[in-house]
Design a protein around this nucleic acid. Structure first.
Length: 204
DNA sequence: GATGCGATTCACT
DNA sequence: GTGAATCGCATCG
């Protein structure tokens, strides 16, 4: 594993998240440059984390070594891609929320199913996963050993700190006040979703 | 642009 | 049974 990665995984997950801005994910002919990420801490610490209540079959890979993919299924139709961080057992991770497609634009567009503006190809975690062709089969594979279906490459240089914005994580109901979402200022590919608002059940 | 809401499957309680 | 780390479309301004 490269020294770059080693240092990133050892950092606090919020710093790891910032350090991943500008990194590139490549899968099946499509490359995405990360412009928006969210940090999730580990078991018993972060109530918004899937690992908060401990290890389960679904989140088991979060407890494994860093640099691996944790992919989960939400809302009955979407896949989301996370990068496992920290020491093995720490169960922290960074959710990849959005990016700019830098290679394979037409492949990504085909995966997204037709007419999609470039900036929207990987704008949002489920769209990003779709653009890369990522699904549950990727979960548990390494992103950094060059052997897996998805390859993660470090940023050519760290993002300018003045360029990094921070705010509440999107769509989470717990710990909604923590500014653990990070994005690159001015990037058109940054998702614009609002904070989750619990909706009343419609059975009435 | 902002806001509201339904779709649709699964893991966990 | 409940609610979820979302998205796309409809509606309003």
């Amino acid at each position: 594993m490269s020294p770059v990665w080693d240092g990133l995984w050892r950092a606090e997950v919020v710093d790891t998240a910032r350090g991943l801005l500008g990194a590139e994910l490549t899968s099946g002919g499509v490359t995405v440059r990360l412009t928006e990420v969210e940090a999730y801490q580990g078991m018993g610490v972060d109530p918004a984390s899937h690992a908060y209540r401990g290890r389960t079959p679904r989140n088991a890979v979060m407890f494994g070594p860093p640099g691996h993919a944790y992919v989960y299924f939400v809302f009955g139709m979407h896949w989301c891609l996370n990068i496992v961080c920290g020491e093995p057992g720490s169960a922290s991770a960074v959710l990849v929320r959005a990016g700019e497609v830098t290679q394979g634009v037409e492949i990504a567009r085909a995966r997204r199913g037709g007419v999609v503006p470039d900036r929207d190809l990987a704008r949002g975690p489920a769209r990003l996963a779709t653009a890369l062709g990522v699904d549950g089969a990727v979960s548990g594979t390494s992103l950094v050993d060059g052997q897996g279906p998805v390859i993660l490459v470090p940023p050519p240089y760290p993002a300018d700190p003045w360029h990094i914005m921070a705010g509440p994580r999107v769509g989470v109901t717990a710990a909604a006040d923590l500014p653990w979402r990070f994005w690159l200022h001015g990037e058109p590919s940054v998702s614009s979703y609002r904070r989750h608002i619990p909706r009343r059940r419609r059975a009435r």
